[in-house]
Structures are given as C-alpha cells and as structure tokens.
Design a protein around this nucleic acid. Structure first.
Length: 523
RNA sequence: GCGCCCGUAGCUCAGUAGGAUCAGAGCAUGGGAUUUCUAAUCCCAGGGUCGCAGGUUCGAGUCCUGCCGGGCGCGCCA
C-alpha cells in the first residue's frame, strides 16, 4: 500500500476496469468519514448500490455512504493503522517502483561561467536537486548535470572585458566594450590575475583561466548552498557537432539561406526556423547548434529520459529544444520552466543583469541566511509563480521562518521521547486501544507525506505544503493531548500515541532527507 | 504585434485533471489559552462581488473567448 489515497483510487480504478482514468480521492468534509471521491460525478451510469457493496467488502473500509453523490468512506482505523505501520516499519515505503531503474539525466542551473552565481540561480538549484531526490525515491537512476557554456560569443565578450580590466589595473586607458561585462568583480579578479604566477597576455590562456575560475566558484557556491552535481559538462567537449548536423542535413532538416544554415524547427512546431551555422561573429556555430548536439550526446550516453530546467527568460527556447529532440529521433525530453525570482529592496524591484553588474549574489545570501532556509524558501512557491525575495525580509528570516514551525515539531517529538521513561514501542507492535478522531487525524496527516512525494514529481513545492499542513496537525494535537498519559488514560493509550509520534518522526526524517535539511532535536 | 506566466483578504500566496465547508493559509491587527511531554505553540475575531465581461456545464476561482493590468521572452547572445 503506497498511501491510502493511492490505494483507494486504485481500488476504484479496478472496479471500473480502467487503468488510466484519474479518480480524485480526498479527505471527506463529512464528520465520521475519512476520504471521499467524486467518482459518481465523473463516471455516469454507475450502479450505486453495487459500488457501495464493492467498497464495503474491503477489509480496510468500515462504512461507505453516498452523500450529495459523493462517495464517503470511513476507514477501519485499526486495520489501516496496522497496514501503514507495517509497511513503514519494513521499509516498503522505499519500494514504490515508478522509475523501474530508468536512467534520467537532469540538467539545471547551467549558468554561464561569466560571473558569480546570483540569487536567482538558487531557485533552479533547489528545484533541480529536490526533484532529483524525489525521482530517486521512486527508483529512477538520476544523474545531475551542470552544462558549462565555455564556447561562444558570451565567453569572448567576457575575455574582452577582462582584458580591458587588466589594462585598467595596470593604469592604462581602458574601455569596457559594448555588450561586455561591467561588473566590478572582473576588476578585482584582474588585479589578482596580474599579481599571480598565472599571469599572461595570451588570449586563449586568459580564457581558460577565466572559465576554470568561474566554474570553480560556481561549484563552491553550490556546495555551500547544499547542492552537488554528478557532472559538470563542458560545451567545448562536444566534438561531433559537424556529424550531427550532417545527419540532420541528410534527413532534410537543414537548409542554407543567405550563407547561414538553418534548422527547420517550424516543421516541429516552433514559430521560426533557427540558425545553426552563422556567417558572422567569432564562433562558427550558434549556441543552439551545440544544444542539438548536447541533446544527442545525452541520449547517446544511455539515458532514457532527459529533463532540462530553464529560467523564465528561456521559455521561448522550449519549442526549438523539443524540435531538435524530435528531429534527432528522441522524445522523452521534459523541459521545465521556472518563473522569475524578483529581488526586492525597499519595495523596489532590483533588475539583475550580469553584464551590467547589477546582482545579488547567492554567496551573499548564504552569508546572511542559513542555506536550508533559503532552499526551503525557494521551493515554497509553485514553479509557475514568480517568487519575491525581499532583502529586508531575508534578514528577519532567521527569526521568522516557516521552517521553524516544522523544526519545532521535530524538537517537540524528541522532547517527548526524552521524557518517556519506558522502552520505546516498536512500530509493528500490537496496540489494544481505540483510535480517536484526533489521533487518527494526525496519523492520516503524517501518512499523506507519501501523496506529497508523488505530487512533488510535478513540483517539489508540494513537499513544503505537506510539511506545513502536517506541522499544523501536529501542533494542534500536541496542544490538546498528552502523549505520555499512562497515569491518566492507561498504558495502551500511551503506547498508541507513542507509536503515532514515532511514525511522525520517521516520516519527517524522510521528508528532511528529500529536502536535504537537518532537523534539530532541540530548539 | 506575437508567445509564455501571473492577476484570490491590508501584505505574501494556496486552491495539483470543474464538484459537496472552495471562498482558504501564513503574516499583520485585536482578544484569549501555560501548576500539564519546549508558548518558536494553540484557540477565537475582523476582513475578499476570486482583474472585468460574456460563454460551456446540473455545477466555474478552476475550462473557452474577448478585454484590462503586471512580468518575461521574441538575435547569425546565451
């Protein structure tokens, strides 16, 4: 049994004899019932009595009643309790095999090595790493990759700008080129470079220095942020670009116009054909040409599915990437667009631009706020919603943070355990006590963690939503019920509550693992 | 002009394939709760014609069309 919702919708699916129909099962608003489904609204012409009879035959179901054409289900608390806990205790919760070992390459962040990472990169880093953990939970083999754009016009402009900065620190006339990188960080770096043993005037060597410098910096920043990649893939290591283009040409997907070579992405739903080979500039091929090759490279490395996470400024890129994927004969490419992160300073939006040097660095934020708070914050919005990052609020975040609400649950649980003088009961042990509404409510809420992991495949946001709801259930329960209550309510009641507490602890720990967050035993 | 995203309470946002307490949460404001496992908590109260107008449906915050407002993109840059 994966979760109660999943179990019930599977039962209904098999009743209908349809595998792929979506059946909504959610908490019932009717007192005395736990879950309900809108099945009768969705599927016409069902025999109600037969359906009710069918459900009642299930041992985990105690009662079924149709109210307002909603099928309300009351669970058998003891049996459900037993099943879920046995499942959890035997670690079968690891065994929901959606992925079946499928190999997935997930690419995210992939910021250009032309400057430090900024606050906005944090959203993508968090989203990608948590999604990776979620996919691993479902037995996908996940490989996290960071694409380093070390080829192209932008890198050349970086070198141009840096060379001007070198002139500046040597006291010569200088002029940052138009469209170049104006950030002060290049001046600081130029000074360091000038005084180092690596110093050279050779353009190619300067370029290599800059790229490796920024790649290292990105790695360090992300490491401090709590995000680690399996591989850093350099664009310059894509060597069979020409043969890939030849392949596309043979398929009839390329044509020449005005000296440039175009890819027929409109044949695959894009609104424009895209240039792959240029007639001007210092680089022969466009970034997009390398992208085509990169997609091919990913699949040729044996991945069954690739996932690409892009920022909002790349949404126009989705069609052409999918076009390339199809033209190459592949299809399992999921492209996820995250919405913008607005940096607010005194109610004013800061416009970030790496080239102009206006930035809020991820490093600066990490210095002010613990990385796990930041990461929680970055996925506490749906991916399609813009995220406002208020710099004044961020200073308060240490004291006034939703994560504390969840931490406090864990601290309270551990407090109970410390105060519990008996041997802790095993989750699988028999309990001879009725389970009342509040106890069962907390239990259900904890158990719904698994539904949130399932939803997190679409958006890790649902993990933070669950945690908040669960924490609320917990604090409410804690406030009106004592767990250590043998003297007042008897030893069996205490044991029951203790088991729910231990289950909650275990579930919370799994949650924290997915988010790479460390829970405090004391606060 | 075209494309994508957004428009829900004073503020920040949920509402994940249309459903019955879906009109919600947090923050902020006001009032209550600790001889009790940590009050970083809990409970109660005010406050919104879900941007506007049509449409589909037994039923629309949710789907469709148009309009208004905001963001982002539209390069032989990435």
């Amino acid at each position: 049994m994966y979760s109660l919702k999943e179990y019930l919708s599977n039962r209904l699916r098999s009743y209908l004899g349809k595998e792929n129909i979506f059946i909504d099962v959610s908490r019932s608003p009717i007192k005395g019932f736990d879950y309900s489904t809108n099945l009768l609204h969705v599927v016409k012409g069902l025999n109600e009595n037969e359906l009710v009879q069918y459900l009642r035959e299930d041992e985990i179901i105690d009662n079924v009643e149709i109210i307002n054409r909603f099928v309300n289900i009351r669970l058998n608390r003891k049996i459900v309790f037993r099943k879920i806990l046995d499942n959890f205790a035997s670690d079968e919760w690891r065994g929901y095999d959606l992925g079946k070992g499928k190999k997935v390459l997930i690419e995210f962040v992939s910021a250009n090595p032309t400057g430090p990472l900024n606050a906005v990169n944090g959203r993508s880093a968090t989203f990608g790493s948590v999604l990776s953990n979620v996919l691993k939970y479902f037995n996908y083999q996940v490989y996290k990759e960071y694409y380093v754009n070390d080829v192209g016009e932008q890198v050349e402009k970086l070198v141009d700008s840096f060379i001007e900065r070198l002139k500046q620190v040597r006291g010569q006339e200088y002029q940052i080129p138009e469209g170049g990188y104006h950030g002060e960080y290049l001046k600081d770096l130029a000074e360091k470079f000038l005084n180092s043993s690596n110093y050279t005037q050779e353009r190619e060597k300067i370029k290599q220095f800059l790229i490796s410098y920024f790649v290292e910096e990105h790695k360090n920043t992300l490491y401090n942020f709590g995000v680690v990649f399996d591989n850093w893939f350099k664009q310059s290591s894509l060597t069979s670009l020409e043969s890939t283009l030849k392949y596309l040409s043979e398929k009839g997907f390329l044509y020449e116009d005005d000296g440039a070579i175009y890819f027929t992405s409109t044949a695959f739903g894009d609104d424009k054909d895209r240039v792959v080979k240029k007639t001007r500039g210092r680089v022969d091929y466009t970034y997009f040409a390398y992208d085509i090759e990169y997609i091919k490279n990913k699949f040729e490395r044996g991945f069954d599915q690739i996932i690409t996470i892009l920022g909002p400024d790349h949404h126009g890129y989705v069609n052409r990437l999918m076009a390339a994927t199809k033209a190459l004969g592949y299809s399992d490419h999921k492209i996820i667009i995250l919405q913008i992160v607005n940096i607010l300073e005194k109610d004013r939006a800061l416009r970030m631009s790496k080239r102009k040097g206006v930035m809020v660095l991820l490093d600066e934020l990490i210095n002010k706020v613990k990385p796990e708070f930041l990461r929680y914050f970055f996925i506490s919005r749906l991916k399609d919603s813009p995220l406002d990052l208020d710099l004044e609020l961020i200073n308060r975040m240490t004291l006034d943070n939703p994560l504390y609400y969840i931490f406090y649950v864990y601290a309270r649980i551990n407090g109970i355990i410390r105060n519990y003088s008996k041997t802790l009961p095993a989750l699988a042990s028999e309990v001879d006590s009725d389970i009342d509404d509040e106890e069962f409510g907390l239990f259900l809420s904890a158990q719904e963690f698994r539904d949130s992991v399932l939803s997190a495949i679409n958006d890790p946001y649902y993990l933070t939503l669950w945690a908040h709801n669960f924490a609320k259930s917990f604090h409410r329960f804690y406030n009106s019920n004592k767990v250590i209550c043998a003297d007042e309510l008897g030893i069996e009641k205490e044991k029951l509550r203790m088991i729910i507490i231990l289950f909650s602890k275990g579930v919370l720990e799994r949650w924290a693992e997915l988010l790479n967050i460390e829970l405090p035993e004391k606060m």
